[in-house]
Amino acid sequence: MLAYLIRRLLYALPILIGVNVITFALFFIVNTPDDMARMQLGVKRVTPEAIEKWKAERGYDKPLFWNTQASGAGQVAETIFFDKSVKMFALDFGRADDGRDIAREITQRMGPSLAVAVPVFALGLFTAISFALLLVYFRATYLDFAGVVLCVAMMSVSGLFYIIGGQWLVSKIWHLVPISGYAEGLSAAKFIILPVIISVLAGIGSSARWYRTIFLEEYTRDYVRTARAKGLSERFVLFRHVLRNALIPILTGAVVVIPTLFMGSLLIEAFFGIPGLGSYTIDAINAQDFAVVRAMVFIGSALYIVGLLLTDISYTLVDPRIRLS
């Protein structure tokens, strides 16, 4: 097990390096720092001095890969690639355009993001599984059919509609919760409840339908027929046999997103004014703050790789037939 984990982590390294190289190419080779400076300072009438100053302030005035003017290790170390990309592996993300330390900002904003994302994940999984179970219990009836139609209809509604409509109905017409904002501690609940409900609602259509298919597939297995032949009641078969076996693919499939919960949701956080990582990313996109976007890409990929690893481990935990080798 330990050997397997170590090997998987070593596999992850080249992927992370690849991500790093792709983002570096995207941010520094497609557009030179000169282009970015001109973009930030306005395209017309920029003096070369202003560009040089902009680059020097952000450390973009060094060569890309190889510094011929430095000596020894400095030839590699005093370059943009080392400064902006290699240092990310040490979780040193540098500073945002407004001068704040990105790593500090990220640790501060992780809390609010998790406060929304974790309830959304747990509640979403629970409601989708329950709803799918309900449909499967009444399978091949009009209730099942109506439920599937409802799922498809809910999938076809834009996520923006849930947010805009929900905010308008609950906050503006009913005055139940504040439209947007955030508070520390327990008082955050009144700000969090609406975004959580809306996110769950927006996601339930596609996941409930998918889970229903998994449940139905499980029904075709031989052990279900055996259980029925033994004379077990339909309800017992559903809850003791089908549910437990169907949960294996459902839960292991959900594991991959757990680490990425840290990233928060761009849309929800932007609409509800939650000071998490999602709104941080959106603000960075709108302000064209490349340093922040680069840092978020790196963190997001690292978390995704952790998610893949966790998925593998969870497979072995729930299904003893799978051996890691």
Binding site: V19, L26, N31, D35, R38, M263, Q288, V293, G300
Partner: peptide
């Protein structure tokens, strides 16, 4: 695949905007 989709899109669109604007 490991780069979060929205972020890769955001980064690429930002870069494309600079190319088009320059």
């Amino acid at each position: 695949n490991s780069i979060p989709g929205v972020l890769l899109i955001a980064a690429s669109v930002l870069m494309m905007q600079v190319v088009i604007d320059t």
